[in-house]
Structure formats: C-alpha cells, structure tokens
Design a protein around this nucleic acid. Structure first.
Lengths: 205, 205
DNA sequence: TAGATTGTTAATCGATTAACAATC
DNA sequence: TAGATTGTTAATCGATTAACAATC
C-alpha cells in the first residue's frame, strides 16, 4: 500500500467510519451494509465502498460487512492498535479542558506531558498531569520521543512553539491557535479553529 | 451572487484569508499580492485569485490588493459586519473554556446564553454568563431568535439537544460532540472533533 | 514606457457517482 | 435458485493549476 497514492480525503473519512462502527458494536450489531452506513453518515454508499476498496475487500456480497472485522481492519490501517503518546503545550482554559477530556485516552491517545510559561500554572496538576515549565521542553520531550503535540497557546506564540516542538522530534501537531503555521516537509499539521468554522457558516445564514 | 453556485471549499478559505489580512493590518501593511498571501498560507497564488474572482475584482493589476479594502470586502461577503449571537449548550470543561475564550467576541460572535443539565453547574456564572437549566432552553432561545449554537455535550445527548435547538429556531450548529448528527435540510452543521483529526494523522506516522 | 500583477480562460487533475458483473 | 450487496470500472462532475491578455 503506497500511502501517497491514497487521497487524503479518503483517509480523513476512515475515522468517521470507525466512530460509527464503534457505536454499532456497542449496540450489538454484527453486520452492516454500505447503504446503512451511508444513511447514518449522510454520504453515498458508493463512496463508502470506493473508500474501502483502496485498502482491500472487507465485505461479503449479498450480506455486507462484519462490524467487528471492518472496525479492526480500519483501526489497523490507521495504526490505531497502539497507544500514541501526546504532549500538550499551553495550559490555559482550553488546554486544561483537553487535559481532562476522556476522549483522547479512550481512543488510544495518551497525553503524557503538559507545558506552560505561566509561573502561576507551572507546577500545578490537571487530570494527573503536572505542568512543566516550557523552557524545560527540550529536556523532557527529546529523550522520550513523543510523536504528537497539541498546541493550545496564544496565536502570538504558536509558530515559535511549533518550531521548538519540531526540533524536539515531534512529527505531528494539532494546532488550536488561530494562525497558519509553517512546518517543514514531512511534519503533519492539522488545525482546529472554531472561529473559522463559524465564519464559513455565516455566509449561508 | 447565487450562493449555491459558489463551491463551499472556496467559502471555507475566505476566513483564512481574513485571518492573514487581519495580521497584515496589525503590521501596518497597506498592499499585498496574491503571491505573497499564497506563500504565507501555503497555497497557490492562482487559487487565491480564482477564489476571489467568484465575488468580484478586488485588486489592481501591477500592484496587488489593498489590505484594508480586501479585508472589508471579504468580511462583507461573509456577513461579518454584524454581531452574531450564539448559545452554548453543555458547560463542562470544554464549554467553560469556550465561554472564557476571547476569540469569539473579538471576531463578532457573542455567546449570550449557556445551558446545562447538571444541578451543580446550573446557576453558576462563567465569564459573565449565568448557566441556565437545559429544560428552560425553549423559553429563552425561541423568543430571542438566536441563530447559532455551540454544542459541547456528551455524545449520548448531542442528537437530542440538536433537535431541541433546531426546534428553538437555531439555524446553525457547531458540534463538538464525537458523533455524526442528523439535521434537516437548510440547517448548517460544522463539526470539530480532535480525535478524528488525530486518527487521520496517525495513518501517516 | 517597462515591469508587475490581476482576472480569466482553458487544460489538467482528482474525486464522486452511477451502474453492473461477480458472487455470497 | 433468487435476492442482495459487494468491489470495480467507466462516466460524470468539480476543483486546481497553468498560462496569458488586460491593464495599472
């Protein structure tokens, strides 16, 4: 499987399929068709079958997909059969909220360290994580080799922090700061900015 | 301008242009070319010019774009020359963080009410907003006609709350719950789920 | 005028959908 | 076997890029 030959939009839909399959498992469902998945998710059944076909054949003609099999296959494709360590930089209100969010660890993402530059925050503990001074980042991240960072600092500090994280060996950044970051080739970047989402919405209202 | 004739991907890029233009204004820049914008944002200059051309001609050949003019034009296209009222439903850690986030009001989105179902939370005040019991939603939202809701409740309650909000006249929902919501035609829905973002990233790591 | 950059058209590239043979 | 649904191909649709005439 040549990763670069698979459209990124396709990869980005797999987690949505996983989310729905998890729900079906909890409901005790054993089989699901592409059509039923499609109705639940508001996409076309053809798209689901096409997406899956990039990675192989997971279904049975005339029947559909075994829920658990398909779930495990997708988890394996996305490398989710392991714990991914994550560092969090910026322990303001949002950073604190993310530290106490159960959804990360429940899905195999473990926040193992948190950093801030505010002396009033450094040393405090949130959800079992003691906040370390941001000047100590190098010493803590590099040796441990943490692959993913969540960036929840003010926009003004985001690029500087991103640069530092990358120097520390971080390979992917989930950026919450409202700014477009520059990262070198090979570093994965994803952005979350609720204001941008709202500003798209208001066009249609 | 026929809204439906403009690709949604184009509309979704305008807020990014606005973000950069705001920064250029703060830096005192008066003129910018599509090429410089493109370099900053990591897109092609042709794409920027093409995107803008859906809405008109905003630049001057040989010179570029007047930063303030373009910014105001884009703000006007996205209906950002007004205060948009927003309700927030679900005042857990994330909801509290969003209530105290300055970025919304700084960009013209005013959270005017917040609701929760937890008796320990109802009645408390966060960032000047007193939390109301979720059973009172109808009484408060309908008369005021708030167009936008931010949904930060657990996944299990999200669909039920979305349905209620829509019955209260809400026209757009920014959903933070990790679930695919069903909304009627004509209701705008945007989703923010950091776990989905991370699960896409791990494919490439 | 000479140089630069826009706005737009046409070409390319990529993603989605429709349709159906294969097959359970 | 009859009915249902997958996996895949070809057709359609849409978005991006390249190129350049227009023009400041």
């Amino acid at each position: 499987m040549e990763k670069s030959s698979i459209p990124e939009v396709v990869v980005a839909r797999l987690p949505v399929y996983i989310q729905k399959l998890n729900q079906l498992v909890r409901e005790g469902r054993e089989i699901v068709s592409s059509q039923e998945m499609a109705e639940h998710l508001g996409v076309s059944s053809a798209q689901i079958r096409k997406d899956l076909s990039f990675f192989g054949g997971f279904g049975k003609q005339g029947t559909g997909y075994n829920v658990i099999n398909l779930l495990e296959s997708l988890r394996s494709i996305l490398n989710l059969n392991q714990i991914w360590e994550v560092v969090l930089v910026g322990v303001g209100h949002l950073g604190q909220a993310l530290l106490s969010y159960q959804g990360f660890s429940r899905n195999g993402f473990e926040i193992v360290m948190a950093f801030d530059n505010d002396p009033k925050i450094v040393g405090k503990t949130f959800a079992g994580i003691k906040v370390i001074d941001v000047n100590e980042m190098q010493n803590h991240i590099c040796p441990r080799g943490v692959p993913i960072a969540i960036l929840t600092v003010p926009a003004a500090n985001a690029q500087e922090m991103a640069d530092q994280l990358i120097r520390c060996g971080v390979k992917a950044i989930l950026n919450y700061a409202p700014v477009t970051l520059k990262v070198p080739e090979g570093i994965r970047l994803a952005n979350i900015d609720p204001v941008l989402s709202l500003q798209t919405i208001t066009f249609y209202l």
